[in-house]
């Protein structure tokens, strides 16, 4: 057991190192650089521009040889310093990210968890009711097959413009300033609903169909047939099938949770919702090396953590993995 997790941990650390290195490299391969981009936004005469260019290049450490930049990057990273954002200069990247993360969590955590719960229960019921299966499964397939962008825009158009019941941009109204008042909370909830609901819908369809298919598969498994031959009640057979079917869904859930911090890029773009996804787009458009690095760092950490959690959960709930572990050690 110890050996198993020891080895896993090593693999995760190695992956982390490689992923972060790539994360550092990629923005630097993009044409242009953050300083040029910053200066393009202000109009100054050319002498001032070259002074400023030199000043900022030095400030961001971009005048150093690449290998040194890379070492500095790791040294700062280990101190928890992700640098300064060029796009939102002079805010530190960590602060920019910390401001965005609560929006992602508030949006994605309920969307993922609720759609998982509802989708799985729904799929399980659909698996045993012909009537429900015939009506709901097609809807589920349509939902999962719909390009998310399309669904998001459709929802925004219908609820935001036609019915005019929900705002379609931002996390709260520009006219309000963040306070702990009912008015503000209500306003935040209103802005939150459409992005949440659109995410919930697509994921719900996916979970429901996955569960339905898994249960039907499990009901055809040998252990189900054996119980049927012994005249066990349907309830017991269904419960076993559900327990088996939920395992792959569980790892799917963990993977979804892992990308929470990555935000739902498309959702946040469609609804101009200020999470990490939205931030990432802005960072790329502005060639903000440090902000891009920061966003991807969170994505990497999220995915790796989620995978690690799956490994642990599987060992806890699925005896077959445990068997694999002892087999590996032997």
């Amino acid at each position: 057991m110890r050996k198993y997790f020891g080895r896993k941990l090593l693999i995760y650390l190695l992956t982390f190192f490689l992923a972060v290195t790539i994360d550092w490299l990629i923005p630097r391969f993009m044409p242009g650089n953050p300083v040029a981009n910053m200066l393009a936004r202000v109009s100054v005469n050319s002498t001032a521009a070259s002074v400023m260019q030199e000043y900022y290049t030095h400030l961001f450490g971009l005048d150093l040889p690449l290998w040194q930049q890379y070492l500095n990057f790791w040294a700062n990273l280990l101190r928890g310093d992700l640098g300064i954002s060029a796009y939102l200069f002079p805010k530190p990247v960590t602060q920019v990210l910390m401001n965005a993360i609560p929006y992602d969590v508030a949006l994605l955590l309920p969307a993922i968890l609720l759609s998982w719960l509802a989708g799985n229960n729904f799929g399980a019921v659909a698996a045993r009711s012909k009537w429900l299966d015939n009506t709901v499964s097609p809807i589920g397939y349509i939902l999962t097959a719909t390009p998310y962008m399309w669904l998001g825009i459709l929802l925004a158009w219908f609820f935001g413009i036609i019915l005019d019941v929900f705002p379609i941009a931002g996390a709260y109204s520009f006219s309000l300033s963040p306070t702990l008042s009912w008015k503000f909370i209500g306003d935040v909830l209103l802005h939150w609903f459409l992005p949440f609901f659109s995410l919930f819908m697509v994921q719900f369809g996916g979970w429901a169909i996955g569960m339905r298919n898994m249960i039907i598969y499990e009901l055809e498994a040998d252990y189900s047939h054996y119980l049927e031959a012994l005249g066990a009640p349907r309830s017991l057979i269904r419960r076993y099938a559900f327990n088996n079917a939920v395992l792959p869904q569980l790892s799917g859930l963990a993977l979804q949770l892992g990308v929470i911090v990555a935000g739902a890029l498309v959702t946040e773009v469609v609804f101009s919702y200020p999470g990490i996804g939205y931030l990432l787009l802005a960072a790329i458009q502005n060639q903000d090396y440090f902000l891009i690095q920061g966003c991807f760092l969170f994505i990497i950490i999220g995915v790796l953590l989620a995978n690690f959690v799956i490994d642990i959960v599987y060992v806890l709930v699925d005896p077959r993995t445990r068997r694999g572990m002892t087999g590996e050690a032997a």
Binding site: A221, D222, Y223, H225, Y226, A229, L230, G231, A232, P233, Y240, N243, N244, L247, V317, D318, P319, R320
Partner: peptide
């Protein structure tokens, strides 16, 4: 109605006995 006989009166060791038990119980 056959459920009353199954297991109690008539039972089977199926051909697929190797996979007959719920793997996660």
């Amino acid at each position: 109605k056959m459920d009353a006989y199954r297991f109690n009166e008539i039972s089977i060791i199926p051909q697929y006995a190797m996979n007959a038990m719920n793997p996660i119980r």
